[in-house]
Amino acid sequence: MKGTNLGEFEEIALLTILVLKDDAYGVSIKREINEQGKRNISRGALHTALSRLEEKGLLTSKQGEGNEDRGGRPKRYYEVTNKGLTALQEAKEVRDQLWSQVPAFRLQ
């Protein structure tokens, strides 16, 4: 089913948002991916991915409060929708299923 298939980066982004719970906004998401994924992603790429996910309906966002660091500008908090959760589940199932079929000796 086209549209709910998640890209690798999209999956990571969604999972990171879930991990961050109420504190998922641009800067924190990037930092979390940097730390957990041990990789440096570009802000542009992340923002593109987030807005595409939002377009697909896997994410919603709302404006939050601003603070001094941000020059008084509000944060945009992201939240995973039910559709997003389903998509994640499906992705995980596919992977688990495939993992379970990989012969054990291949993994050593």
Partner: peptide, 16 residues
Amino acid sequence: EILEDLQGDLYEHFER
């Protein structure tokens, strides 16, 4: 529509 939070993110990032 996206300028505000984008700029905010960038500022915060810049600050760090």
